[in-house]
Design a protein around this nucleic acid. Sequence first.
RNA 1: GAGUCUAUAGCUCAGUUGGUUAGAGCGCAUCGUUGACAUCGAUGAGGUCAGAGGUUCGAGCCCUCUUAGACUCACCA
Length: 780
Amino acid sequence: MDKAYTPSSEPDIYKLWESADVFTAKIGKLSKAKSASGGKPYSIILPLPNANDPMHMGHALFTIQDILCRYHRLLGDSVLWLPGSDHAGIETQFVFEKKLQKEGKSRFDFDRETLYRMIWDFVETNREINIKQMKQLGFSMDWTRYHYSLEPAIVKNILAVFKKLHHDGLVYRAEKIVNYCTHCGTAFSNLEVDYVDEVTSLYYMKYGPFTLATTRPETKFGDTAVAVNPKDTRYQQYIGQEITVDGLIGPFKVKVIADDMVDMQFGTGVVKITPAHDPDDFEAGLRHHLAIKRVIGFDGRLNELTGKYAGLTVSQARQKVVEDMKASGMLIKVDDQYQHRIGRCYKCKHVIEPMVMPQWFVKIDSLAKPALAAAQKGQVKFFPLRFKKQFTDWMQNIRDWNISRQIVWGPRLPAWYCLECHPGIKLNFITPDKTVVTGLYSDLKANYSYEVIKSGLQSLSAPVDTTYYVDEPSSCPKCGSSHLLQETDTFDTWFLSGQWPLNTLGFNPADPSQSSPDFAYFYPTSVLDTLWDILFFWVARMIMFGLYLAGDVPFKTVHIHARVVDKAGQKMSKSKGNVIDPVSMTQTYGTDALRFALVYGVAPAADIAISEDKIRAHRNFVNKIWNASRFILMKLDQLQSSNPDLKINFNLPLFKGRNGEAERDLNPADLAILQKLDALIVSTTKHLNSYHFGQASEGLYQFFWHEFCDIYIESVKSRGEDALPILFYVLITCLKLLHPFIPFVTESVYQQLVARLGLSEKMLAVSSWPTPHDSKSSVK
RNA sequence: GAGUCUAUAGCUCAGUUGGUUAGAGCGCAUCGUUGACAUCGAUGAGGUCAGAGGUUCGAGCCCUCUUAGACUCACCA
């Protein structure tokens, strides 16, 4: 054996496991019943990484799942850990557009088919890297069951589920106010908006007979009412009246409405109502049947209804409007220290512009109720338990889910419109000579053929009342025209990943009875391990889809782990320059060192502080294991050189009588180490069963280094062959206990032992979980 | 505004139903090791477990309040 453990052998060890096919799940075919608790299906679906993502510490935390899988494999369970990767809709398109930008191009230079293919190729190259890196981290995933979210069978199922939702009356189109990012060019769900406290200005302006306070003077062109509180004695005489407001581009008239939404204490107790560009005002508009007047376009600029302000961006317009109001004496005062919350795009950080536009929604109530009940009944358990409350609170207040995104990277919604029946459909397309054309079909049909429009199509926007067909008709069922176009909106990524456990296990939404054997055997899965940040995005959606489609939850336990942060408790980010790259750490210190550092001394769901120092410390631990093993084998060498016939008797004496058997004599040092080892087996098992990985790893570290190496091995240096059985017994038992955490060094050592001792279990990864030597110790 | 979490040695953190002198890694000090160990071993310094009060025979752990951070959710212009 080399003088020190060399991580460069890790890829060979991984190949050894792969060649023995130990990670491939076998349905109901267990090699042997290895322990009382073993022999059951145990499955984990990997929280699918984004296909375009380079590996970071978040991925390295899959170690937790690997520990569980390897532990259960040793228990004798039929283990499936199913890997995959996600096309990650907006995330990927965002990265790709940045790349285009560097090349001096933009997405508007291409038709959607071309753009889609370009992103596809971009993702394919990265997907391979991702897989290679996961193997480097030793993850015992079943690569024969790897899936990608855009593979044809999965997309087919997604579309079938959409049709089922539609058939069940749970899908609808509606013109609602949505969170629109003018920079990303798409709407988002409520979850994708970050609200940031910011200090801005609050403008007090003359507004007909009133003075009112607003943060958004530039939207006044879209006002269709002004509101006061019905109890406010100051304004009683105006309620129901129509007032005239000087609008900078000429006077306009609005109605004064009374609504409880108005806080009499705030500002002057008067609020201008802009239903087209504010969520609250939109709601008020519904209550009072107000007109919706759009004055901001999807490009983030004021439109033709704003006179001289048309073409200005929102912030430019605000500045100009304020200047003009000041000049004309309409501006009363400005509070420039007004603190409030501004919604920003979680992706690009630009201010979210609430917009009224047609979108696709899923009615969520009938999906959420069973999911809520499942959490409350404990059908899905949460660990740590506090996340259950967070989950149920959210599920009780859930709103309809906007599933449509105005991007190209993802499956398009399976809905088709007839252009001839609905010439009011708005089109964007690029002609063969690379000109971008925008307009209503009714205005364009004379100059452009259907074929040119279809092949160059970038996006379309159909009025909310447009008839659609969810099965592609060859011609319009109403008018017989063949001029049909498919909706250009794509699915929210989470609509796909919400069905991930079902799709990867071979569930057939069209006919559940035709689902694959994997589904029958491994569903519901055992554990879902993830970070809390996607509890609502992903976990909630999976539970809803699982119950809705398959009638059962997708996993029995949700295990929430924390974020990896740096030594100072800061989130790792490129801009802070505090990112520790897991791949380079494995190259420097070995994968095992990194893995152990990620779980050692970490409390459940507490932030995981990682530093190169910590990884180095655990590299030393890994090396300690290597050298202790080397010492024991050298001891064997020495003894065998003087006694070639030396045989090791592995029938260790029990230190308490088993079944009334008499106690045997044991050297006090032997007795002590065996008793402590038994306690270690019991505590490690207990901690793994309760997801206390930090404590499990600490116990193993303490025992191996300070009990076994410092005390026991030191004490046997002067002893002869009588010490060998217990030396090997303790070593092998420790290798098994440590293997889930640090698979490479333990397997590497174990292979040496197999070569020297001819052990019956030839591979540690599929050996057996230890039970206490003393029959009276018990493992829960 | 509602809710949740965190506060333990210089630094990063463990401490699972309350029980004897509160632990680890890194760092620090002294000594020893070069035939298991990119070292390793031995010994040591260092904490009124955020503050105050309470329950208890007994509290880092349970309860209340205070202070300081972090996070989640929420439509106030």
